[in-house]
Every structure is written in C-alpha cells, then in structure tokens.
Simulated scan of single mutants.
Amino acid sequence: MASVESRVTRRNGRGTKVYDVRFRDPDGRQRKKTFAKKGDADRFAATVEADKLRGQYVDHSDRTTVAEYARAWAAARPHRPTTARRVSSLIETHIAGTRLGDRRLSAVRPSEVQTWASDRAHVLAPSTLRNLVSLLRSIYASAVLDRLAASSPVVRVALPRHERARVVPLTVAQVQALADAMPARNRAMVLTQAGLGLRIGELLSLRLEDVDFLRRTVRVEWQIAPGSKMRSEPKTPRSRRTLPLPQVVADALAAHIHQFPPGADGSLFTTTTGAVYRHDYYGSMILASAVERAGLPAGTTSHDLRHHFASVLLAAGESVVAVAERLGHENAALVLSTYGHLMPDSEERTRRAIDEAWCAITVPSEQAASG
C-alpha cells in the first residue's frame, strides 16, 4: 500500500514541510513522489493504488519519447520486408523528424496530435496522411497496453477532406494501343496483365511452370517486391490463386515464348541479359514511354490494367465475389468501393426498383378513385 510520510527540507536556512508518497509499481519497484501539500499527497496515494487494482497504472516518470517507442513498436511487428521499410520511413520522416517525436510518450495531448496532423497535411497526400495517423493510433494503442500512457491522444483528429477519384478503366482499344506501343519484348506483358488482372510484382515474377496451357490456367505463387529482383511470397494469402487463362493471353504468351525464350529460372519476362525486371525500370521507363506513344491519359500506370480487367468482368456480369478472388483481394468490399459505379445497368435497375415499389401503392389508389 502507498504510504505518506512528512519531512522537513531546508533551503536558505528556512525549513519547509513536504510529503513523500512511497509505493511500489506493478513490477515491484519502489517509487517515491513528493508533494508540498498533504491533501495532494493523500489523493495521489489513493489514486495510484486504485490504478494498480484496475490495471491502469502509468509510470509518468518514464522518459521514453514518441519516436523511441514508435521505433521499438515497429521492430516488434511481424511486418513483411516491404511493409517494414514503408513503416520505418513514415516513422523516421513524419514522426521522429517532427516536434511530436521528441515529446514524452505519456505527456502528449490530443491538441498536439491535431497540430502535428495539420502540419503533415501540407506535405502529404490525404490518403498517405490517413495511413500515417492510423499508424500513430496503433502505436499509442500499444503504449496504453504497455502502461506507458494512460490513454491515447490520437482521438477525433480532423483531417482534410478527401474524395477518391472514380476509376475510369481503359478500353480494350486503349489496352491494344498500349501493347502495340511497347517494345516487342514487352508487348505480351501488357496483354497478360490486362487479361489476368495481375499486380505488377506478380506479372514480373511469372514463370513458365506457372502457366498450364493444357488446363488453361495460370497459378500465382510469387511476386517481386519493389526495389528487388528476388521472388518473395505474395502480398496476402488470398494473393495465391489460380486464374483462368483466356485465349488472347495464351496466344500472346505462346508467341512471346517462341520469340523470347524464358530465363534460366523459367522467368517469362526478362531483359536482354536474362534478368527479371525491376518495378521502377519497367513501370517508369518502358511502360511510361509506351503510354505517351499510345496517347493514353497522363498518369496511366500498370495498375490501370488491373482496373481494366475488373471492369471487363463486371460488365460481363461476373459476381463481385468472383472478381475479388480473381484480383487476390481479401474480401469483396474493396471491389465494391472501387468499381461499384461500373456495375452494368445499375441506373436502370435503380429506376425499375423504385417504380415497382411504388406501383404497388399507386395502382390500388387509382382503382379506388375510378370506383
């Protein structure tokens, strides 16, 4: 139990009475806090014992900063290498590199978090800022569990309004124009990504053994992460999937394999030296140049070929669940939020649904009036 003891301190020849609260923290370490008034000491003693019983004790003498704890939190997370690099970059640049990062973890107030978020809004895109605030929220949730903060100050953070632009998918004619504008060695890559809906990392890692021309399927087993030339596990467990092989893709791959034999490890798409492509070289150099030559909208990337794939399936009446599986998404929610406006005949279905619902009321009313 916490105890309160009085003593006299002397300064400049004068004696002053103070009150020491002695207690043990949840780890059994002896602690002391001094007060000038007995009432304050008594209240603290009662509060600290109650906090220990409720499991809400916080060591306010701990000097750990937000940046220090954030680094330790990130190091303990089971992040994939690419995720770990991204999280580390966010922490070092936008937390450790700001005034918030130097603040004591337990002393940060919600108003300070709001000031920090408003400052970051000047240098970050709205979507990146939301990810950053979510990261800080997770860090503080862990700090609360570790009893290094009484509560999280990352609450009710006002962020700039962000309206995500609606996806305008490439047409078949535009995809064909892009393929025609590519160097011969890369032409099949456009048709393969557009016809299978692959992520760029999945496209670059595709091997001959992943393609079953007889059963007309393609197995997605690996990806090549940004900044790497080595195969690694796919983004999520759902990313491992078997895809139907359309004839247009089968023909493009067969022609490609005949003209450009696979690499020593079976890689279908390789450079002239036999190496697999890096994300940045393929996307920023080869594909970007072809986009300009084909006259496609500025900003078109390889990801637009995934959008094209999804839009074609939805227009053909494929279910949202099936499209999510083909894309390797964890659930269909992302498909609905991204491509819901592309669902076929949605406007006509809306009109028909409302008219049919009201028809059941208006018809009897008209009959009663005529009677």
Rank of each mutant, 00 (worst) to 15 (best):
123 V>E: 14
124 L>T: 05
124 L>G: 01
125 A>H: 13
125 A>V: 09
128 T>G: 06
129 L>W: 06
131 N>A: 13
132 L>F: 04
132 L>I: 03
133 V>Q: 00
136 L>A: 11
138 S>E: 00
138 S>Q: 07
139 I>A: 10
140 Y>C: 00
143 A>D: 02
145 L>Y: 04
145 L>R: 15
147 R>G: 04
149 A>T: 02
149 A>F: 00
151 S>C: 06
151 S>G: 08
152 S>Y: 00
152 S>T: 01
152 S>R: 00
153 P>A: 12
154 V>H: 03
154 V>Y: 00
156 R>G: 13
156 R>W: 08
156 R>F: 11
157 V>S: 01
159 L>I: 07
160 P>T: 05
164 R>A: 15
165 A>C: 05
167 V>H: 08
169 P>E: 11
169 P>G: 06
170 L>A: 02
171 T>E: 04
171 T>P: 08
172 V>H: 10
173 A>V: 09
174 Q>Y: 11
174 Q>R: 10
174 Q>T: 04
176 Q>N: 13
177 A>G: 15
177 A>V: 07
178 L>D: 05
178 L>Y: 09
179 A>F: 06
181 A>E: 09
181 A>L: 02
182 M>D: 09
183 P>V: 03
184 A>L: 12
185 R>Y: 09
185 R>K: 12
185 R>P: 02
185 R>Q: 10
185 R>N: 04
186 N>S: 15
186 N>R: 12
187 R>D: 05
187 R>S: 03
187 R>Y: 04
188 A>K: 00
188 A>T: 00
188 A>Q: 02
188 A>D: 06
189 M>F: 03
189 M>Y: 05
190 V>M: 07
190 V>Y: 03
190 V>N: 04
194 A>C: 05
195 G>L: 10
196 L>Y: 08
197 G>F: 07
198 L>Y: 06
198 L>K: 00
198 L>C: 12
201 G>P: 01
202 E>T: 02
202 E>C: 01
203 L>K: 01
204 L>F: 05
205 S>F: 05
207 R>A: 10
208 L>C: 07
208 L>D: 07
211 V>C: 07
212 D>M: 13
214 L>V: 14
216 R>E: 01
219 R>M: 13
219 R>W: 13
221 E>D: 14
221 E>R: 14
223 Q>Y: 04
225 A>H: 08
225 A>M: 13
225 A>L: 12
225 A>S: 12
226 P>H: 12
227 G>Y: 03
228 S>M: 08
228 S>R: 10
229 K>E: 14
230 M>G: 05
230 M>I: 11
231 R>C: 10
232 S>R: 13
232 S>M: 15
233 E>N: 10
